[in-house]
């Protein structure tokens, strides 16, 4: 095992050398304004007030569309790999669990909805809102205040694909209307972006819950 010994002593040295090189490299980066100015110049056509949301859902909508597709692909991969072990047993139901859930779930739903809504003018957006809604779903899945039936399989698939489908439909409509693929007419940009974000947030929340379940069923 001398080879492994040698590797075990060499690896910290190599990591230290890499750390030194990278720290020197990032500290030596020349200051640059990047793309802040072109984005600021195009904000009047973006339909939303927040530059990050404008980049995500208007200027680089194609990337965000593919990002939703990656989430969908991940669920498909997880489902294909399969998992048969049961989800954790239903915890002992008591007044504390019920009371906490009764308060936390509505707060999570309102927070998620607010985050999607506020994304057009401030920090927030479909992914942040979807993550909060997904967390509420996972919490519900773990505590199971009632033995709720799983969402029927066709509805699950529809919900998963809805975000990508709506995004693709709007993007293709933009192409046919002459604004280019994933382009919007400037007057319609705000309602279209908000619609895409709402649908995407629901799909993301469902995706996260199903990724957590990992191909297992709720029973």
């Amino acid at each position: 095992m001398t080879r492994h010994r040698a590797a075990a002593t060499l690896m910290p040295l190599m990591s230290l050398a890499l750390a030194g090189l990278l720290v020197v490299a990032v500290l030596d980066l020349p200051p640059q304004s990047g793309l802040a100015e072109p984005v600021a110049g195009a904000m009047d056509r973006a339909g939303v007030d927040h530059p990050v949301t404008a980049v995500l859902l208007n200027f680089r909508a194609y990337d965000t569309f593919l990002e939703l597709a990656v989430l969908l692909l991940a669920v498909l991969a997880v489902w294909s790999l399969g998992r048969r072990d049961p989800i954790p047993a239903r915890p002992v139901q008591g007044p504390v669990l019920h009371g906490t859930l009764r308060h936390l779930i509505p707060v999570a739903v309102v927070t998620g909805g607010y985050l999607v809504w506020v994304g057009s003018s401030d920090s927030g957006g479909a992914f942040q809102g979807g993550a909060v809604l997904g967390a509420a779903g996972v919490m519900l899945m773990l505590s199971r205040p009632r033995e709720l039936p799983m969402l029927p399989a066709p509805l699950q698939r529809l919900g998963l694909a809805l975000g990508v489908c709506v995004f693709l439909a709007v993007g293709t409509a933009g192409l046919l209307a002459g604004h280019g693929f994933m382009g919007y007419p400037p007057d319609w940009a705000y309602p279209l972006i908000l619609g895409i974000e709402l649908v995407a947030a629901l799909s993301i929340a469902l995706t996260l819950v199903l990724l957590f379940l990992g191909g297992r069923h709720g029973h």
């Binding site: 304004s33 990047g34 600021a40 404008a54 995500l56 680089r60 990337d63 991940a74």
Partner: peptide, 24 residues
Amino acid sequence: GGEGGVDPVPHALVITGIVVALSA
């Protein structure tokens, strides 16, 4: 670090990256 305020494009890249990292 830029002079013209915070650059939104890397922020968009990071949130895309977070979602892809989560899926992976």
